[in-house]
Nucleic acid binder design. Structure first.
Lengths: 183, 183
DNA sequence: CCAAACATGTAACGGGTTACATGATTAC
DNA sequence: GTAATCATGTAACCCGTTACATGTTTGG
């Protein structure tokens, strides 16, 4: 039950249409909660039906017409409730680690190239985050809001740093590993 | 499409019944791919229908009776294919980071306690991983398989280390943060 | 014998993914 | 005017989650 709350947060930061939300989910918010436009439209419908958001009065007939939403007090209250509620951490699910474990059984042929590809992708993402940090959080001015958002970005940076280091280490091991074909 | 491959890996490491698999998914494999017994039974049925695994010949009538499976050559081939195939990294989805971002908008009331709880949980998990490392990967003896499995465990250790550090840092910030009520 | 634990399932639901459909606006 | 793009939506499928059902073995 996180998508509706991700949308409420985004709409509180700035009222938007479905497609604008989709674009924002490809950038900042999407860095730790992604969503496709289909999910977003479906969820916007639900949130409106529940009285958590409403369409800004311009009353277009619908299809093909831009429709912007804003958060209602009930929506803000629901978001505050959810944010403060205790939630158990969900177990990770990482296909790449699974493949590493599988390769210990069926052999490492072919996986090394993909490790390199992932390493390149994580390096790109890391560079992008660091660019954002430089641009949006220069030393000095920090409101409490800034500091919270910076913390979230730091999580992204540190996670990407971890992956680049781990993948580098893994590839070093592969260099020394005698080629294990299928057992 | 990872669960069937997680099961194939587990069965190759050691033929097992559904419940035994469920227990192993609560331990080692579950550290990066969790699954409930319902998922596992559903998937075992599919894998058997596809000819990737078969029940070990003891031919019990079914309900309440233990039924063990082993991997067939077709299953091993499918696992090798999947392991070597290129896969895009899936975007993260982390509710806690989402809540941090939401708390920048609706206020931080209530979230601090949950951050402490998560910190304690990640510390526990980290200690457990380090225990496993000490027990299963003593310095010295390392077959290629050992080194691959150790790499996977290191990923778990480093990820938990990241989270404990990040949460500690976040809680320090909270100590200095003037209480931001709902804006 | 009865309760607890073991062991295998079924059913319903919800969210995420993919493919497709359709109307409006803009650029050439 | 027509092709590309913008914008909103529908439909189907798969997987993960939760609740429940049912039979078997073991311990007291």
């Amino acid at each position: 039950m996180s998508l509706p709350h991700a949308i409420l947060t985004a709409l509180l930061e700035k009222p938007s249409s479905g497609l604008e939300l989709t674009r924002r989910f490809d950038r900042s918010i999407g860095y730790f909660w992604s969503a496709t436009h289909q999910q977003i439209y479906r969820e916007l419908g639900k949130l409106e039906a529940e009285g958590h958001i409403r369409a800004l009065p311009s009353e277009q007939p619908a299809r093909g017409q831009k429709k912007s939403y804003e958060v209602l007090p009930a929506g803000r209250a629901e978001l505050a409730r959810w944010t403060a509620a205790s939630q158990d951490p969900k177990p990770h699910r990482d296909p790449l680690l699974l493949r590493m474990r599988a390769s210990a059984v069926v052999g490492t042929d072919g996986i090394e190239a993909d490790l390199r590809r992932h390493l390149a992708l994580h390096r790109e993402q890391l560079a992008e985050y660091e660019e954002i940090e430089k641009r949006d959080f220069p030393p000095g001015r920090d409101t409490p809001q800034d500091r919270l958002r910076h913390l979230v970005l730091r999580a992204g940076i540190d996670l990407e740093t971890f992956w680049t280091q781990w993948l580098t280490h893994a590839l070093e091991e592969f260099g020394e590993l005698p080629d294990t074909g299928p057992a």
